[in-house]
Simulated assay, not measured.
Amino acid sequence: MSSLRPGLAFDPTPLTEPVDARRVHEHHQAHKASRPRTAGDVIVWVVMALLVPFGLIPVVMLFTDLARLPAGPVIVPVVFGGMIAATVLIISRVRRQVRRDREIRYRLDRFAAANSMTYQSRVANPSLPGMIFSIGGDRITTDALRTVTSPHVEYGHHQYVVRRGKRSTTFRWGYIAIELGTALPHIVLDAVANNSILGTNLPTSFGAQQRLSLEGDFDRYFELYCPEGYERDALYLFSPDIMARFADTAALFDVEIVDNTLFLYTGPGISTVNPEMWAWLFGTVSALQSKVDQWTRWRDERLLEPSAVPADTPVATSVGTPPPSRPPGVAMKGRRLRRGRGNVWIIFGFLTLVALGWFLPLLAV
């Protein structure tokens, strides 16, 4: 039973049914053949080919030194046997993990096909407009499932690497991208539940002057940011009934609206072989879609259709005529939020307090 719209019904059978190891292997080979070989793949093989012989040199030197010891005839076999056992253990665990990863890709691919979705195991530098897709380097999306019918919904994982000098950190996210019927202002709902004492968990921060307080007690769940001048539009889009739906179903997600896409961000674990997780994800998306479908009626009052009033018509003569229609879209001012300084000032203030707490007692002596 495949679903025409996620959340109504879906077929979880491919996630749990027994699989044939031969079919999993064939699926992996087909996927491997379809993936173009990159310069990075060649570099990896060259580096490995060089490391193996050079890695044997210290091992040979170690056993040479051990053999010269009085107890060498006993120590050498023991150490050699221990190294062999450790190597076999590591290789077996790696092979099990590799087989597990291949089986997951096979199951997700069949699950997507059974539920009117497409599956991509790996996408380099995805062209999505969300904030997590334009940061860092080595950007890769994995296990992306996308609905075939419109409005499209995509579920997947994304990772990128941020380098600071010689150090590098890999950040991993899970995301849901929901296609909207029209472009909307850039709005971010920063979930309070996953923030820390140092501030937001999001990779980007926004200026405090763009913060908009929500009605009721919704500020307990989200911090809303919208472009300056779009406060009324944000309150229209996030009316109390829509905010209640987000608080009930998506309070654990960070939310971003950018262009014509609604993003839900969380930790990795979106594309999984757990049927209960997919039931929850589909239910969340369906619940949100039933509310945000009304956003297609929104129009940016800052946009006027150029053809509505002839270019040579004086403004005075247009008074009393029907107002020109506003086309879908967003004025330039509302397309992107202005970024802030992040947690720099919080960290600086914290370090200042620590320094004062350290030096003040010394000054009092």
Rank of each mutant, 00 (worst) to 15 (best):
P151N: 03
L50P: 01
S116L: 02
G334N: 05
E179H: 04
L8G: 10
N201V: 14
A355G: 10
R5L: 08
I84M: 08
S318E: 09
R326E: 09
G137Y: 02
R299C: 08
P314C: 02
I270V: 03
P328V: 04
V88P: 15
L337C: 07
V354R: 10
L362V: 11
R172A: 03
R110A: 08
L145F: 00
G320C: 08
I84S: 06
A331S: 15
N125W: 03
I242L: 15
A311D: 03
P126G: 11
T266E: 03
G165Q: 14
F222N: 01
R122T: 11
S213M: 10
G136Y: 01
A124D: 09
F218R: 12
A33P: 00
P322S: 03
I75G: 01
I57D: 13
R211E: 05
T321N: 12
R139E: 00
G320P: 04
M61Y: 12
I104W: 01
E103N: 09
G7A: 05
V60C: 09
P53C: 03
T284N: 05
F10Y: 06
Y230G: 05
P240D: 07
A331E: 15
D138K: 00
A49K: 15
L128I: 11
G357C: 05
R35G: 08
R102D: 01
G357V: 01
I347P: 04
R37D: 02
G334W: 12
Q289T: 09
S196K: 13
